[in-house]
Simulated assay, not measured.
Amino acid sequence: MKSSANHPWSVGDVAERFGLPTNVLRHWESVGLLRPDRDAAGRRRYGEDEVVRIAIIQRSKAAGMSLEQIGVLLDDGRSGRHEVLHAHLDDLDRRMEEMRRSREMTEHALRCRAHDITMCPNFRAGVEDVLARL
């Protein structure tokens, strides 16, 4: 992307580029994640730095971070960044393990010849950890 001084984008331009509704960008601004400049008419103008922040927010949300966690990540003056990031890594590890188990169960279901896969003992073994919570 070009320099923010030469190519500031409107809220509509940025929303379109990222496939977001404009109200999402306004909400992120209202919670302090974005701070776009304003032109003489008071319209939001997003420069390269804000566009990078939007990309970080999108990637972080896709990875399961809350807006509050993202706020800590993006705020260079706020304490607790390492704690938030460690907690997020722990959450990612837990979710990745759940995804691995789900994949194994799905692959088994594809190979299973039983009409009712819930009756397959090997398939049921894939959910024993969930059943153990009862």
Score class of each variant (00 low, 15 high):
residue 18 F to C: 05
residue 104 E to Y: 02
residue 96 M to F: 09
residue 50 E to Q: 06
residue 64 G to I: 13
residue 120 C to W: 05
residue 7 H to A: 13
residue 70 I to H: 04
residue 28 W to C: 04
residue 110 L to K: 09
residue 103 R to T: 13
residue 73 L to T: 06
residue 66 S to C: 13
residue 127 V to I: 13
residue 92 L to M: 13
residue 75 D to G: 06
residue 91 D to V: 00
residue 23 N to Y: 13
residue 23 N to L: 01
residue 56 I to R: 11
residue 90 D to T: 12
residue 105 M to C: 08
residue 32 G to H: 07
residue 62 A to C: 05
residue 19 G to P: 03
residue 134 L to D: 14
residue 95 R to H: 13
residue 105 M to A: 15
residue 78 R to M: 12
residue 84 V to C: 02
residue 13 D to G: 04
residue 130 V to H: 06
residue 76 D to P: 06
residue 29 E to Y: 02
residue 72 V to F: 03
residue 100 R to F: 08
residue 110 L to Q: 14
residue 34 L to G: 04
residue 122 N to D: 11
residue 14 V to R: 02
residue 36 P to A: 04
residue 117 I to V: 14
residue 62 A to D: 10
residue 106 T to H: 02
residue 12 G to R: 07
residue 100 R to D: 15
residue 120 C to A: 07
residue 70 I to C: 11
residue 61 K to L: 14
residue 45 R to E: 01
residue 117 I to L: 14
residue 89 L to D: 09
residue 12 G to P: 08
residue 112 C to F: 07
residue 17 R to S: 14
residue 5 A to N: 02
residue 94 R to E: 07
residue 71 G to S: 10
residue 128 E to V: 13
residue 19 G to N: 06
residue 82 H to C: 08
residue 41 A to D: 06
residue 112 C to N: 11
residue 39 D to E: 00
residue 100 R to K: 15
residue 58 Q to P: 07
residue 118 T to C: 10
residue 59 R to E: 13
residue 93 D to Y: 01
residue 11 V to P: 02
residue 89 L to E: 06
residue 75 D to M: 00
residue 117 I to E: 05
residue 11 V to H: 00
residue 51 V to R: 12
residue 114 A to K: 08
residue 23 N to C: 09
residue 114 A to Y: 09
residue 1 M to A: 15
residue 73 L to F: 11
residue 19 G to K: 09
residue 96 M to H: 12
residue 98 E to P: 05
residue 63 A to Y: 02
residue 21 P to L: 01
residue 51 V to A: 10
residue 6 N to S: 13
residue 114 A to N: 08
residue 105 M to H: 05
residue 45 R to K: 06
residue 131 L to S: 12
residue 5 A to T: 10
residue 104 E to H: 12
residue 117 I to T: 13
residue 6 N to L: 07
residue 27 H to S: 06
residue 42 G to R: 01
residue 107 E to W: 13
residue 100 R to P: 05
residue 32 G to Q: 01
residue 53 R to Q: 14
residue 24 V to T: 14
residue 121 P to Y: 11
residue 31 V to C: 04
residue 127 V to W: 15
residue 10 S to E: 03
residue 71 G to C: 10
residue 90 D to E: 13
residue 78 R to F: 03
residue 49 D to R: 01
residue 123 F to L: 12
residue 40 A to Y: 01
residue 32 G to F: 06
residue 98 E to D: 15
residue 33 L to I: 03
residue 6 N to D: 12
residue 74 L to E: 01
residue 71 G to V: 07
residue 129 D to L: 11
residue 29 E to K: 06
residue 38 R to D: 00
residue 23 N to M: 06
residue 108 H to G: 11
residue 64 G to S: 05
residue 70 I to G: 13
residue 102 S to M: 15
residue 125 A to K: 10
